[in-house]
């Protein structure tokens, strides 16, 4: 098997390296990916020149993500949600005989463990609110500065994982219980899909936000900008809950007890 792998890797690698000579040089602004074919239409140039007029969103990446390629992002979010459900289906075990986690005293591990716990606990107590606030800023400001639903959602999920690592999973679950993260994951998808369906109800295509200006009382261009914030919030909800669900289920073999 090792020999076969080595042969496969060397053959594939040399074929790819042979093709490298035909690629445009690094940093070439006129390469086909950056400027399209000679005299033809280039979608990435269109994004750069027209985003401001189409959507009034300064961050072109967010505009492409949430508006021009809204379908792609919607189904990527669905993939993440399904991944969360798959982990739930594979690992989660119901244990009706187990004691309720609220009744169990938090585990102590001797005097030395306590000293460590004080330092780690205090640091996390100071850090976690800042992390969460910054995550919310990244979500809410995602169409003006680098950021958006995916990045902010991962940060928010990581802050809950930090609680679980610093104290134990029970503490984290008391703040973000299984019922809550499952519901939040669904709500995220529903927000995103809801924006799409709302556009359809107003006689436009799915996720064609411009028409929502009738409900928002702003210009169609600003309606696109506001709707992008809405779908980013939906993405952030789903990503947050799936990130925490992955950690909680993997670290406890699906029992959701006692953590690492």
């Amino acid at each position: 098997m090792k020999k076969f792998a080595l042969v496969a890797v060397i053959v594939t690698g040399s074929l790819l390296l042979y093709a490298v000579g035909d690629f445009p040089a690094f940093g070439d602004a006129k390469s086909p990916a950056n400027a399209g074919v000679e005299g033809g239409f280039s979608v990435s140039r269109y994004y750069i020149t027209e985003t401001a007029a189409d959507t009034a969103v300064p961050n072109i990446v967010t505009a492409v993500l949430a508006d021009y390629r809204g379908y792609d992002t919607f189904f990527e979010t669905t993939v993440i949600f399904i991944a969360g459900l798959a982990i739930f289906a594979i690992l989660r075990v119901a244990n009706p005989g187990a004691p309720d986690r609220r009744d169990r005293p938090s585990s102590d591990s001797g005097v030395e463990g306590d000293h460590n716990r004080v330092i780690i606990g205090m640091t996390c107590r100071l850090l976690i609110p800042v992390i969460q606030l910054f995550a919310l800023y990244v979500v809410a400001h995602g169409h003006h500065s680098p950021g958006g639903g995916f990045q902010g959602g991962v940060m928010l999920g990581a802050s809950f994982i930090l609680i679980a690592i610093a104290s134990d999973l029970d503490t984290a679950l008391r703040r973000f219980s299984e019922r809550r993260y499952l519901a939040l994951g669904c709500v995220g998808i529903l927000i995103y899909g809801g924006f799409g369906l709302l556009c359809q109800l107003l006689d436009r295509h799915f996720l064609d936000y411009g028409v929502l200006h009738k409900l928002m009382g702003v210009t169609p261009v600003m309606a696109r900008s506001h709707s992008m914030l809405g779908v980013e919030i939906g993405v952030a909800f789903t990503v947050t809950s799936v990130m925490f669900a992955i950690y909680a289920n993997l670290s406890t073999r699906g029992e959701l007890r006692s953590g690492l």
Binding site: A33, N34, V43, S44, Y47, I48, I60, V61, V64, L65, R69, D72, T73, E76, V79, I80, A83, G84, G148, F150, Q151, G153, V154, V239, V242, M243, I246
Partner: peptide
């Protein structure tokens, strides 16, 4: 070019989930 960034942004998070 914003397009590769958009594609990879979602690919990273989907990669973590998968």
């Amino acid at each position: 070019n914003p397009l590769p960034h958009v594609l990879m942004l979602t690919a990273i998070v989907v990669g973590v989930a998968t």
